[in-house]
């Protein structure tokens, strides 16, 4: 399938459809960015729907936001920002060819990601105990229960979709770690790590938006 090509003093895997490693790298990068555009559109559709309903029921959506555990959300936000940083360090390590450091930073990033998921599921469990899971067990006493429920519907769809993305991200990092240990990456070839880094940062940025729309608005009501 792919033939080794000598670049500098290193053999590279150049896939058959490409003329040179430069082309291969740039093509992969374009593919990744175009893919991220589709992700933006997907989350964008949900954000739009959320915004439409928020605009027609601002008070109820703030009431819903009041039910969030702001501390857990804040910790998670901090964790993800930190993980973006460690991911950036991983990408940097790979670009200067330090594969050991790369492996270490990949592991740290994954651990932070797992912590995030742990806290997120704790939150889900708390919502379940509070009877705030629409479709399974939802109780809210107040005049705008239906609108508060809608807030939670969007909360679960959006954060659930984000959790799926996080899980995929951790899976990608695992593959990267495996390939690092196999010795696939070097200063000359590290495209895959770059792309994983872009994806990871994208998922982090989505969370910042989620934090802003779900946790912050109810803050002043507490």
């Amino acid at each position: 399938m792919s033939e080794p090509v000598l670049v500098g003093n290193q053999l590279l895997e150049l896939r058959e459809q490409f003329e040179n490693p430069e082309q291969q790298r740039e093509t992969a990068s374009i593919g990744m960015w175009v893919f991220l555009i589709t992700e933006v559109m997907m989350f964008g559709g949900l954000f739009t729907a959320f915004t439409v309903y928020r605009l027609s029921n601002p008070a109820a959506f703030n009431e819903g936001s009041k039910e969030m555990t702001i501390v857990l959300g804040a910790i998670n936000t901090a964790l993800l920002i930190l993980s973006s940083f460690t991911m950036a360090l991983a990408v940097y390590s790979s670009s200067i060819g330090k594969t050991k450091l790369l492996a270490i930073f990949l592991i740290i990033t994954m651990i932070i990601g797992l912590c995030f998921l742990g806290i997120k599921f704790t939150e889900y469990y708390l919502h379940y105990q509070d009877h705030k899971v629409p479709g399974f067990w939802f109780e809210y006493h107040g005049p705008s229960a239906r609108q508060v429920q809608m807030f939670f519907v969007f909360y679960f769809i959006l954060t659930g979709l984000h959790v799926i993305h996080m899980t995929i991200g951790i899976g990608i990092l695992l593959v990267m770690l495996y390939r690092t240990l196999l010795g696939s990456f070097s200063a000359t070839y590290h495209t895959a790590v770059d792309l994983a880094g872009i994806y990871w940062s994208f998922v982090d940025i989505i969370w910042i938006f989620l934090y802003a729309i779900f946790y912050i608005p109810g803050l002043h009501l507490k």
């Binding site: 175009v34 555009i37 589709t38 992700e39 559109m41 997907m42 964008g44 559709g45």
Partner: peptide, 8 residues
């Protein structure tokens, strides 16, 4: 690329 995710 732009519209399919919205349908999804």
């Amino acid at each position: 690329v732009l519209n399919t995710p919205v349908l999804a």
